[in-house]
Computed example of a mutant assay.
Amino acid sequence: MTKQERNGIFLLAFIIIAIQFGYYFLDFSSDPIPFNKRDYELYSREIDSLKQIEIELRKKKLYPFNPNYIDDFKGCFLGMSNEEIDRLLAFRKEDQWISSVEQFQQVTKISDSLLGTLAPYFKFPDWITNQKGSTINTNSNPYLIKKEEKIDLNKATAEQLQSIKGIGKVLSERIIKYRNRFPDGFMDLVELNDVYGLSSEVIESIRRKFTVTPSQSIEKVDLNKATLTQLVKIRHISYDLAFSILEERTLRDGFNTLDELIKVRGFPINKLEIIKLYLSLENIKAE
């Protein structure tokens, strides 16, 4: 071995010995962190409180609403079954009105437990709550107008619209502007939900005084035969949504009902009733 190699070996041995001495004789430990039980308990309570707040925020929040205007989306949110929602919608299509908690259960046949949860949030119009008793004969109620006496919303003037409590110049002009966006105007009163600023109470008042006579010139599109071009012409259906509908239709080998559209990725469930106005199912696939 050369002199440099020997010196290198001695230097390495010296470093190893120095490290061993340092390990045994030098104290590298840090000071222990003191445990403050009081601070720990305060911190734990704060964490628990934040968790509880998060749980409360994730819970469904209910606000007062008129049960006469429960739609598919609202009904699902409230925990109603499809059959219960369908019974209510069928009842309303006959121009009949729910006027009490008891009548709501009779019509929908919901369970007592669900009724107990929803009933405190029912908000009926003043002309119902001011009546004596829990039931109202809608045929004799002075606030209800026979269908043949109602004004066609597609021909209504701003002055006629302003006769509704809660509708002023701005809202009447907004309704007419929305109506004029489409050659045939409103297809159904449900489209009033698309007019910004109209509360459920105002829409309810409009329903009592106005009606819509759908144009006979509008041809509904068969959902199971519709092309991309046909779908994108329908209100609330974008190109992306139309592609998703066609994709879902292929996967399902066709739709059985229009309500199956809610299974389409990205479908606006709250616009289902409006979209359904422009669709049909002429040839339903065989089971």
Rank of each mutant, 00 (worst) to 15 (best):
E148P: 11
E148K: 13
I176H: 01
T129D: 09
K155M: 15
T135K: 05
P183K: 13
I151E: 01
L161P: 03
P125Y: 12
N137S: 11
Y121H: 14
E149S: 05
N130F: 11
R179V: 03
L171T: 08
Y121C: 10
K165P: 03
I175M: 02
S140W: 10
L161K: 02
N130Q: 14
F122I: 05
N180G: 12
Y178R: 10
Q162P: 01
F122V: 08
K165N: 05
P183L: 15
N137I: 10
F122Y: 06
A156C: 04
A156P: 00
Y121F: 15
I175F: 05
L144W: 06
K150D: 11
T135F: 12
G185C: 07
L171H: 04
V170Y: 04
N139C: 06
I176V: 15
N180I: 02
Q162E: 15
I136K: 04
S163P: 03
I175G: 03
F182E: 11
N139W: 07
K165R: 09
I175Y: 00
L144F: 10
D126R: 09
R174I: 05
I151V: 08
L161S: 03
I128N: 03
F182G: 05
F186I: 06
L144A: 05
P125H: 12
G168N: 02
Y143E: 07
K150C: 11
P120K: 13
L171D: 01
K155A: 13
S163I: 00
I167V: 03
K165S: 09
K147Y: 02
P183Y: 14
L171Q: 01
D184Q: 13
L171G: 00
S134C: 08
S172C: 04
Y178N: 00
T129V: 14
A156H: 04
G133N: 09
S172F: 08
I136N: 02
D152A: 15
N141F: 06
E148L: 04
I175T: 00
F186W: 01
A158Y: 01
K147P: 09
K150G: 07
I151Q: 00
I151N: 02
L171K: 06
D152V: 02
Y121T: 05
K165W: 08
V170K: 12
I167L: 04
L161A: 02
S172P: 05
K169A: 13
Q162K: 14
K123T: 12
A158H: 02
I167Y: 03
P183G: 09
Q131W: 09
E173M: 02
S172Q: 00
G185Q: 09
A158F: 10
Y143W: 07
E159D: 15
I167D: 00
Q160S: 06
S163Y: 06
I151L: 12
F124N: 10
I145A: 06
N154Y: 14
T157C: 11
K169Y: 05
K177N: 03
F122C: 07
K146S: 13
G185V: 10
F122E: 14
P120I: 04
L144V: 02
K169G: 12
